[in-house]
Structures are given as structure tokens and as C-alpha cells.
Design a protein around this nucleic acid. Structure first.
Lengths: 228, 228
DNA sequence: CGGCATCCATTTTGATACTG
DNA sequence: CAGTATCAAAATGGATGCCG
């Protein structure tokens, strides 16, 4: 951690302005969104953020590193690769990203446009916000979600929900589909049993667990201006 | 409300990216911060945001208006002046601003620098986050806070807190001070009775209500990564 | 004045090419 | 793969001008 990005600070003695000095620059919070699902390599970040220039990604990662939000780490052998991960200060940005996600969901009112990318991580992260503890009361489940090439883990237990990118241990059910279908399920555009029947979605496990997943994670439409 | 600022969108089908398309541009959330305390004229906004160019403020207000976050209004006579105010969609940004404020408070660890402005609205807004309902249980109070030229109202009742810029009705106590002292009180750098004794702060009302104010609104240091 | 619009120097960004 | 280097386009900031 160090003084605000001297490059271009708002120069206001105010927690909001200070925060924005660090994570208000273009792309910064989308990088954080990606890292909230776990450590990522440069390449993964680059591909998850179509439109960013590689030099700009480099610069943002440097800025965030200097800010104490991100750090470089080397995964234990045999992986042994260098990755970027959030520090604990960076993890504390989760409420910020969730609040923006909740507000931004007002604008998710139509099908994706052709020129838009559909970032899987965004959906897996959104699950943390749309999770309804009351629907999952007393239940413990681990889900494996395969979206295209990528695998995610979702675990719910005791009214809590964690999500991450990577293989889960002993999932109760594995759900394989494409991001469009997955997004459709979460936004009420598609129904799980229909998608199953149409082959847009494949599961290994109990279909009732798929229904549970959708029930627990589907978006509340026209949600009020509450917290989170 | 309309499609994301076509000018420069992230083009991701994702609530976070959509949100940032609207309020991720430089200055946008600081404008929202100002308006969260009530309608403001162009001039008030311009003066509250030192460093912004007037044309850029114009453009941001246009963008926010097109986004459905801000609208122009004319105050009822005799004022009859044109102001900018938040729409209900704009009001819903309060959790976003609060989350950033909470995170950014990690960096408020020193005295203000000479080149920093100290925006009164930021502190009055912060009260909404630092408010501790448990300390105010069963109490109802209205405070008038005079910071330099500006007057603010703070009302607490039934575990709720509202703040605004402007004269409150029948305040229980009026607190007059400068922004530095006020900030010092909220951040534990100063004690209310000492500031009173030193003449940095003047009240009309019961000094016990000043103590109450500080107890109810003072910042929790090293707060965990909780919600809000 | 208040509320912008215009002009212009400086930064930032985006796109592409290149390197260890 | 993980970045640098380069360069054109766009955004920003500062000053100044206009107009009721």
C-alpha cells in the first residue's frame, strides 16, 4: 500500500475519492472482478477483458500492485506458474463489486448483443449476490459448473455460498452448458428442464439438484434498492 | 434510461460492466456523491469538484441524464432555480458509493495534505455509513451541522439516519465548526469536549447531545470487510 | 453572474507490432 | 507466454468566450 496514484488523483480528503483514486480507473474493477474468483495468469486476464490493450493491462496490474490490491505469486509445484492474486485489501473490494453488480443489473434487460462478450467469471461471481440463503436453508451442496472450456466450483452450506474457478472436490452434480444458456437460466429467460430436454445443458447427477441450483441462484427481478 | 454510453463501452454482457459503463467514468461517482445529499446547481457541483473542467462537468451531467441517473428540475417558487437531482435509479447508487467509501476509508490514515480539498458533503454523506443504530437505540434527534458557509441536517430515529444539505426543522442542537475539526472528531483525532474548550467548535444546545453525536457517528477503526 | 460552448496542450487509451 | 514499443485516436484539464 502507498500513496494514491500520484498520476491523477482527485486530491480530495475523502474516503470515496481515495477509493476511486485506486480503483476508479478504467478496467481496474473488471480486473478485480476476475481475480475475485481466484488467481489468474496474465493471459487469462487478457482474454477475459476483450478490448484492453496488453500494455494497459500491464500498467493496471502495476498500479493495483502498488496500491496493495493485487500481488504476484507463484503457484506451488508442479504448476509453478506466476499468477496475480488479490491481497486481503483486494478481497475487501467484494462489497464494492457486488454493489455495482446489483445496480448494473438494472440494465441487463435484453439478450446479449452480437458484439458483446459474455464473461463466464462475471456470472459465477454474480451467484454470490443472487444466492438466496432462505431457499437453501439446511442444505449443503457442491456444484460443478462447466461453461465451455472452463470449470467452476460452487459450494453452498449454512446459508453461505462460495464460488471459484477450478475443479471442485466431490461435486453433488456437474452442470455442463454454454454461457448463453447459463445466463438465460439465471435471468429467467430459460427453464432448466426445457434446456435439459433441448440438449443445451447436460448434467451428471440428480436433476432435482439442477432445479435447486436455479431456485437458489436465479435473479430476483426488479429488486429494490437494498444493500449488498 | 437508454443504451450504455456508446462512446466507450466495455461491451460485456455483465451487470458489473454495464454499471461501469454508466458510472465508471471519471468524476461520475463524485457527482453522484454530491447529489446524494440533495439537488445541486451547476455552480455548486463545479465548486465541490475542484479540478474538473466546466465542459467536462457539463458532459458528465448530460451522460448521467441520458443514463437516467440524473434529471434537471426547477425548484418551486420563490427559489425557481434550475437544479440537478438524482432520479430513483440514481438514488439506488447509494450502496455503491457507501461500499467505495467504506473501502476507501482504509486510506484515510493521515492528516489532510495541503493540496487536498476537504469536501463537506463527503463527511455528511459518510455519516450514513458510520451511523451506529445500536448506540442510538430508542433515541430521536435532529442535528444542525454548520461547516463553514454550509448548513446540513442530520436526523436519527428508530435506528435510521438521514442527512441532507440545508436547514433542518427544530434541531435539538446546532453544531458549528470547520471541516477539519469535524473530520477530526469523526476519525478520533479530536475529542468533542476539548474542541469545545478550544473554541474550535461552537454549539447551541445540550453538550450531552454533542457527545451523543460523536458516539453515534464516529468511525469504527480497522473495520472488517463487512457489508454496506 | 450562471450555465455552458470553444479552443488547445497534455494524458490516456486502443490497436498493432515486436521481443526475451 | 508475458509482457514492451510505437503510434494514432480519444479523453481530460485549463483557459477563455459567449449569451441570457
Amino acid at each position: 500500500m502507498r500513496a494514491p496514484a500520484a498520476r491523477r488523483s482527485y486530491r480530495q480528503y475523502c474516503a470515496i475519492a481515495y477509493g476511486l483514486d485506486f480503483i476508479g480507473e478504467r478496467w481496474a474493477l473488471l480486473i478485480v472482478r476476475e481475480l475475485l474468483l481466484g488467481p489468474k495468469r496474465f493471459k487469462d486476464l487478457f482474454e477475459a477483458l476483450p478490448g484492453i490493450a496488453s500494455n494497459l493491462l500491464t500498467q493496471r496490474l502495476r498500479d493495483l500492485e502498488l496500491a496493495g490490491v493485487v500481488e504476484r505469486a507463484v503457484l506451488p509445484p508442479p504448476a509453478g506458474i506466476a499468477v496475480y492474486k488479490l491481497t486481503s485489501l483486494g478481497e475487501e473490494l467484494e462489497p464494492v463489486v457486488r454493489a455495482i453488480s446489483r445496480w448494473g443489473s438494472h440494465f441487463v434487460t435484453r439478450e446479449p448483443r452480437k458484439d458483446e462478450s459474455i464473461p463466464p467469471n462475471a456470472y459465477m461471481f454474480a451467484l454470490r449476490s443472487t444466492f438466496r440463503p432462505e431457499e437453501a436453508a439446511g442444505l449443503a451442496r457442491t456444484f460443478e459448473v462447466q461453461l465451455g472450456e472452463r470449470v467452476f466450483g460452487v459450494h453452498i452450506e449454512e446459508g453461505r455460498c462460495t464460488t471459484w474457478e477450478g475443479l471442485p472436490d466431490n461435486p453433488d452434480i456437474s452442470i455442463t452448458t454454454d454461457v448463453r444458456t447459463f445466463s438465460g437460466l439465471l435471468w429467467h429467460r430459460l427453464k432448466p428442464r426445457q434446456s435439459l430436454a433441448r440438449g443445451k445443458l447436460v448434467i451428471s447427477g440428480d436433476p432435482a439438484d439442477l432445479d435447486l441450483f436455479v431456485r437458489v441462484f436465479t435473479h430476483r427481478l426488479s429488486a429494490g434498492p437494498g444493500q449488498t
